[in-house]
């Protein structure tokens, strides 16, 4: 029908510049990467993936089964998973608790702004700051352990395989808590104050109010925070590059960093692409929840 055609033309008129840019600079490269990842000397195949997955050198390996019992390196994929397992619950819970506590806090918007500050600085600077606070010469944390007499933690954390990954993960809590707090805080603010007051009049303790009233009410926000934090942990690159360069001895590599090593250091585009696709599959699996929710909304 005439009016339908007209509406389509109009819509695509508005969409045209976006589709052009997305097509050339986003969709085409994504498809290209998939194709490159499948190209081997003997035609299309999964060779690159097998090579990437079975890579042995600590700086590029995705999994190092022999090391899993001891200290890192465990392989980039394992590092990402450990990162997620520690960082997601810690950041989510801390942000939620803090958001609830802020109801009572004087100067709450200042507290929020301070915690959010680490979200707005460039992530490479965040990585440098992690390097800074864990540095034996100038950093606070080694000094504290020095005073406590804990020798093994009184040195530059990023320089030793036992501590480098841990310092990055702890630092990422510092970097990312602002996100969890902001999203949770917006959700807590939209819980009607009367609900909290009713629970208080009914004799609920603060913990019970948190557990029974606030946490269920903000659950959608909590889910959002968990998924977005997980995605961030999967894609992490800048702070690793700035703080440890994946070292020492591959003890703090991550998938995105390995991809960069293949691409920029080894100039092995097939394996770089295969690593990128593995990373993408993990990301989309995690994001599918958000995508489905957005389509329903």
């Amino acid at each position: 029908m005439k009016s339908r055609l007209r509406e389509n033309l109009r819509a695509y008129g508005f969409l045209a510049p976006a589709l052009l840019l997305l097509g050339v600079f986003v969709v085409y490269p994504i498809v290209g990467t998939i194709i490159i990842s499948l190209e081997t000397q003997s035609g299309l195949g999964l060779g690159n993936y097998l090579e990437v997955l079975s890579e042995k050198s600590p700086s590029k390996a995705l999994v190092i089964p022999g090391n899993l019992g001891g200290p890192p390196p465990w392989g980039a994929l394992v590092h990402n998973m450990v990162w997620i397992l520690v960082h997601v619950p810690l950041t989510t819970f801390l942000g939620l608790m803090l958001a609830y506590m802020l109801i009572h806090v004087y100067g709450r918007s200042l507290v929020k702004s301070i915690v959010f500050l680490s979200m707005i600085i460039p992530m490479v600077v965040g990585g440098l700051i992690i390097r800074f606070i864990f540095d034996s010469q100038v950093g606070v944390i080694p000094r504290i352990f020095d005073t406590l007499g804990v020798e093994s933690l009184a040195r530059t954390w990023t320089a030793y395989p036992e501590t480098s990954l841990a310092s990055l993960i702890l630092g990422s809590v510092w970097l990312w808590l602002g996100f969890s707090l902001t999203i949770h805080s917006a959700a807590v603010d939209s819980v009607p104050r009367s609900l909290i007051e009713a629970a208080r009049i009914d004799g609920a303790s603060e913990w019970q109010i948190f557990r029974r009233v606030i946490a269920p009410a903000v659950w959608p926000a909590t889910l959002t925070v968990m998924v977005m934090t997980l995605l961030w942990d999967l894609k992490i690159f800048d702070i690793v590059y700035a703080a440890t360069q994946g070292g020492p001895g591959g003890s703090s590599t991550v998938l995105a960093y390995v991809m960069w090593l293949y691409f920029a250091r080894a100039l092995d585009y097939g394996r770089a692409a295969a690593t990128a696709v593995i990373l993408t599959i993990l990301t989309l699996a995690a994001a599918s929840y958000m995508i489905r929710r957005s389509l329903r909304g």
């Binding site: 894609k235 990128a276 990373l279």
Partner: peptide, 29 residues
């Protein structure tokens, strides 16, 4: 505001692009 063919498909594309890591694009780029 408009209804048009492939509207849902294009919207899914936008959501997917939001989730995709930068690493997936750089080699062809």
């Amino acid at each position: 505001r408009f209804s048009f063919v492939m509207r849902n498909l294009l919207f899914v594309l936008i959501l997917v692009v939001m989730a995709i890591p930068q690493q997936t694009m750089v080699i062809p780029l």
